[in-house]
Amino acid sequence: MRISVATEKFLTHLAVVRRLSPATVRAYRSDLAELARSRGDGPLEDLDIEALRQWQWEATSAGLSKATAARRTSAVRAFFSWAREESLIETDPSARLTAPKRGRTLPVVATASALDEVLDAAAEQAGSGDAIAVRDHAILEVLYGSGTRVSELCGLDLDDIDHDNRTLRVRGKGDKERVVPYGVPAGRALDSYIVRARPVLNARADGAAGHAVFLGARGARLGPRAVHALVSRVVAPVVGAETLGPHALRHSAATHLLDGGADLRTVQEILGHASLGTTQIYTHVSGERLREAYRLAHPRA
């Protein structure tokens, strides 16, 4: 069986059996397509450890980051482990494949005061009554106020919102469902959007978006790219970055929760992390900010 044919079967397994998110399946597809391309899409059983190491070396020589190389290695291991279980191959050539160690990079976090300015400016623009400006203000408030992923935000339906308790029901990685709180400012912005702006956008597509909360300029369900462009346009300048994704607001929400005294387990639950170790990166960010404040303020620092 050719690599590409086996890959399609594996991707179906990921989506249907393991119920991984579409974004995760796309990442697997990209990594395994690169493997098939570089090895000439030959028979799966012809791949051995030396071929996989050659593939790794070529990627590293092309300037691939350690994080991306590690992700690709993980994808290949999962692929061959599945192939062995399905008896497509007799032995797993990836069993001895090692991934490069990832260097720790701290997430980009905006200060609370900087985000206050961003959100105040967005609120002022929303005051004009323009439907897109009202929507954008609600998006920024909800992303920062709830710490949700952009995919979770874009996947929200109207019945996922509990206005009385100010909570959202979101579906995260692996289609896992959780309930996250949001604050008073986010509640005001969200309610304003649903009453004032969503009907305007919804009418542009004759209601084709169904119960989707956030709609695009043409009335369809809003996609992650549009949210990325919004965050990059309004938040990136305040942290001195050329581009910045919605995850920066999630990073900022988590860090500010810890700065305010929230315990790690609570933050883990809000963010929907399967592992506490993933959440712990924010303790390093919070610690760095604490040390920097000490260095600037203490006369004996």
Rank of each mutant, 00 (worst) to 15 (best):
V142M: 09
R53Q: 09
Y182D: 05
L222V: 12
L222M: 10
A189E: 12
S65E: 04
Q125R: 15
L257E: 04
R225D: 14
T283I: 13
L249W: 09
R53M: 07
S21V: 14
P181G: 07
C154F: 06
S65N: 09
S252V: 09
L140R: 12
A131H: 10
E292N: 11
A112Y: 07
A212R: 12
R225H: 11
R265A: 07
H298Q: 00
L276K: 07
T68Y: 03
V231T: 05
R265H: 10
R300V: 05
A59H: 10
I161Y: 01
G207H: 03
Q54E: 14
S94D: 04
T279S: 03
A15V: 12
A217G: 04
P93E: 06
R196L: 10
A62C: 11
H228I: 01
E8V: 06
I139D: 13
L35A: 05
S252L: 00
R26P: 01
V142F: 08
Y28M: 11
R204Y: 04
T278I: 01
A212I: 12
R171T: 15
K101L: 04
A62W: 13
R135A: 10
V238D: 00
G216R: 07
G147P: 14
R149I: 00
K101I: 12
S81A: 15
D92W: 02
E177P: 01
D191G: 12
E124V: 05
R295N: 03
E45L: 05
V285C: 00
W55G: 00
E85A: 15
D41R: 02
H284I: 13
H137L: 11
L97W: 10
A78D: 07
V16Y: 01
G63Y: 00
L215M: 06
T243C: 02
S252A: 03
A138N: 06
L244E: 02
E50Y: 07
D31A: 06
A59W: 13
L88W: 14
Y182T: 12
D160W: 03
G155H: 02
G174W: 05
H251N: 08
L14I: 13
A83Y: 04
G174H: 11
E288S: 06
S61P: 00
S21T: 15
A131C: 02
S151P: 01
A254R: 11
P299C: 08
R149H: 02
H251Q: 10
L257T: 04
A83D: 06
R18C: 11
Y282G: 04
T24L: 01
G240E: 09
H298M: 13
N202I: 01
L190P: 00
K66G: 13
C154E: 03
M1W: 05
G272I: 01
T24R: 05
A75K: 08
I281A: 03
V235Q: 10
A51H: 15
L119R: 06
W57M: 05
R166V: 02
S30A: 14
D120F: 03
R204G: 00
V17D: 10
L276M: 10
P93H: 03
E50V: 08
G240T: 06
R169C: 09
R221Q: 02
R149F: 12
L222I: 14
T105W: 08
V235F: 02
L47W: 00
N202Y: 00
R102C: 09
A293K: 09
A297G: 05
T91M: 05
S151E: 15
G187C: 14
L230W: 03
I281G: 01
F214D: 03
D206M: 07
A236G: 04
